[in-house]
């Protein structure tokens, strides 16, 4: 498997090299939104004398920078790509080979993240300096963050694949994707850190998978959780990852029965 990944990596880096500009644009785009919310919360907290619900201006900045990094590391375009591939007839050649189509996108996903990570960190550094951020974490926050971000990225990836399988039934899945993004926007901690949300919304957020992809790893990275809570969050992430894998396997099998290999 490692040898397959290595060859895929070589091949796809070459192919991806032609789309460098698009990659950078996408990355910048994904940074803009957290910065807008950061600016808004900074304004609110300044107006209220420097803090809102226990979050200082610097805390907000730390949270949103963490969220930007996490958002970047958990990006997954699978569902969009998959729909496109099916329509272009590019799924069929992959199905003929003894390698699950999912593996190609693991490699693509990793390439995207690695190649854009450095510019992203530079941008984050600029933001951090602009908003005078102070990191308030302990060393074990970083130790927790590593498994947490891996689980979050895997969870995001698998949810992308579950949604992707909808293509087998719906041909077009923009509606599903939009719905998912809106839901994630509300419940993943993008509007505000979870603890500032109304109690009811918090309950919903912790019961849905989206916060386990964004808000939770971001809080851990920022240093905003206790060790016990942090460990509990990891368990939550693992459970959601397990569920998404089971859901994917089921949906994939059922979907292939519907597959009509149109245009291929």
């Amino acid at each position: 498997m490692i040898r397959i990944y290595r060859q895929l990596l070589v091949a796809q880096i070459q192919a991806a090299a032609q789309y460098r500009i698009q990659a950078l644009l996408w990355m910048l785009f994904s940074i803009i939104r957290p910065v807008i919310f950061l600016a808004a919360w900074t304004a609110v907290s300044t107006a209220q004398g420097g803090s809102v619900g226990g979050y200082t201006t610097s805390d907000f900045a730390a949270y949103y920078i963490a969220l930007t990094i996490v958002g970047h590391l958990t990006t997954a375009w699978n569902s969009f790509e998959f729909e496109f591939e099916v329509r272009q007839g590019r799924l069929s050649p992959k199905l003929l080979r003894p390698l699950h189509p999912l593996h190609y996108s693991v490699v693509e996903n990793l390439i995207w993240k690695v190649t854009t990570f450095l510019p992203l960190m530079l941008v984050c550094l600029v933001i951090a300096l602009t908003f005078q951020v102070r990191w308030s974490g302990e060393w074990w926050h970083l130790a927790l963050f590593v498994p947490s971000i891996v689980l979050a990225a895997a969870l995001s990836f698998m949810i992308g694949w579950v949604v992707a399988t909808a293509t087998f039934w719906l041909q077009r899945i923009n509606t599903v994707n939009t719905l998912l993004q809106r839901t994630s926007f509300i419940f993943a901690g993008q509007i505000a850190p979870l603890s500032l949300m109304p109690a009811a919304l918090q309950v919903i957020s912790y019961s849905l998978p989206f916060a386990y992809i964004l808000a939770i790893p971001a809080e851990i990275l920022r240093g905003g959780v206790t060790l016990e809570r942090g460990l509990l969050y990891l368990v939550g992430q693992a459970v959601w990852l397990g569920l998404s894998i089971v859901a994917f396997r089921f949906a994939w099998r059922a979907g292939l029965r519907e597959y009509s290999a149109v245009g291929a």
Binding site: R3, R6, Q7, V10, A11, A15, G89, P93, R97, A264
Partner: peptide, 27 residues
């Protein structure tokens, strides 16, 4: 194998030799 005259199985953005190496590992 299934070969279709009107469909491509190769990645168009890289030389065939590189696709071949991927196939070698996959198979």
């Amino acid at each position: 194998t299934l070969l279709m005259g009107n469909r491509s199985q190769l990645v168009w953005d890289i030389p065939a030799a590189d696709s071949f190496l991927v196939l070698k590992e996959i198979y």
